[in-house]
Design a binder for these strands. Structure first.
Lengths: 171, 171
DNA sequence: GAACGGGTACTCGGATAACTATTGTCCGAGTGACTGTGG
DNA sequence: CCACAGTCACTCGGACAATAGTTATCCGAGTACCCGTTC
């Protein structure tokens, strides 16, 4: 019962994209370098985001990833679901009540959903509701409040280490 | 990101104990038979509940498991935490923000908790709050409402298949 | 008849394998940009 | 000077291992009960 580590990576990557993609698509290698992560595995997570329609990818020399929608229109829940594969639920009810002694019960007893499953479902819904209340934009705002200028720092850092041939050739 | 199947087993087992333990300790083999589960692995889950102090175990011929407290004083959250090992949280923040580009940030920038982690924490808290609102007693009540007489049926079924030597010898 | 001791069967408990899901890595297909040539 | 085709380097994407966590199983230690014996 632990959330995949890819969720954390994806969320940070999305925030980074929200700060950078106004300029140009950001390649996975660049995002990986920003967060000091293995490029290949991060690519895997980004692909999941593409499949979920949250980011778009472009190939070729100046290719990379960018958000498919404004950051204010992407919720944390969507990112979590994208990485986790949109699982049906945290708690998988196997209808245990209908096994063993439950087999002797008269028909119709199990029309109502399992009480235990209902409780777990309810709790999960609270969790999802809270995740849906936050968007990439609100998170980005929170980070800027906590550490002002972090977005500019990222942009400057990326441009400073930028590997655009025209820049290096312009000396 | 899926809850261990043992959680479902433990919750059903606890409800069963709530119905049966007024009479005598219930051996793991009996609980397993009630739910048609592998005895050995169910024992493992019950041991986790013992370690968490939710149920007590007694060895010997008439040994078994019983609830350590009234069913109204055991929350679903406690059972979940007992099985899941009382993990720190669903989302493990690895302080990704302090790696890569974050290394260039001035000190003191990271005094405030990570915004992303805070959101996940908040969502998890909602989840835990909801789980804490329900007790074994409330679940047992819900099951009785959905399928009246299920507790009696369980008791009768257990006694009917009871393997107490005195009963079988009394024919 | 009552008390006591030994044997027995039953219980939990922890140590030990099989399996699944997650994590990590690699190489190939595709694409857009740059360069050199011809008009 | 401009248009065009070829080449190249860089990108994503999916296929392929290593690892950790979960699931499943077994056998041993301990305990309370039952029975036979003795007082």
């Amino acid at each position: 019962m632990r959330l995949s580590e890819g969720v954390e990576w994806a969320l940070h990557s999305c925030v980074t994209l929200a700060w950078l993609d106004a300029e140009a698509p950001v390649p996975a290698a660049k995002i990986a370098e920003i967060h000091d992560l293995p490029t290949a595995y991060l690519t895997k997570q980004l692909q999941a985001l593409v499949r979920a329609g949250l980011v778009t990818s472009s190939s070729g020399r100046r290719g990379g990833f960018r958000l498919a929608r404004p950051s204010s229109a992407i919720t944390v829940l969507e990112v979590v679901d994208a990485i986790e594969g949109g699982r049906a639920g945290i708690f998988g009810c196997t209808e245990l009540r209908q096994r063993g002694v439950g087999r002797d019960a008269p028909p119709g007893c199990f029309d109502a959903p399992c009480t235990i499953a209902a409780v777990m479902e309810s709790a999960e819904q609270r969790w999802r509701d809270e995740l849906a209340r936050h968007t990439l934009a609100s998170i980005a705002r929170g980070i800027r409040t906590a550490t002002p200028g972090s977005d500019d720092a990222t942009r400057v850092w990326v441009r400073g280490r930028g590997s655009t041939p025209t820049d290096t050739a312009g000396t």
